[in-house]
Amino acid sequence: MAEGVRPRVKAPKSAEAGEVVVIKTLISHKMESGQRKDSDGNVIPQSIIHRFVCAFNGETVLDVEMHPAISTNPYFEFEATVPEAGDFEFTWYDDDGSVYEDKKSVSVG
């Protein structure tokens, strides 16, 4: 189930050097747990996003390993340090091999 996946990220456009900013991310995804059954009683196979990484200019901010107990449309809120101007890179890894990416630029000053 990889259709209709849309990442949404809320990050500030500018910050002071060294400032700690709050980042919120949400990605639309069914996060099929592998525990549910369809109307015929067959188990629906697991299909989730199993990893989420946020990096700034290549340096890791947060790396999350996810299991089926993460809710539909995985949401994360966390804090990141902005040492200089650059880009936040957000990457989600799907069980089916898809990789979803988003990028947010931050200016300093």
Binding site: V20, F56, E59, T60, V61, V64, A69, S71, E79, A80
Partner: peptide
Amino acid sequence: AAGNPTPGVATFNFGPLAGAQRAKTRIRL
């Protein structure tokens, strides 16, 4: 989550640029 069919929920690994060792998410119970 001790009472879920599989106990694993998530593991947060904080990198050098983490502003604080804090994270919010939503889980299934």
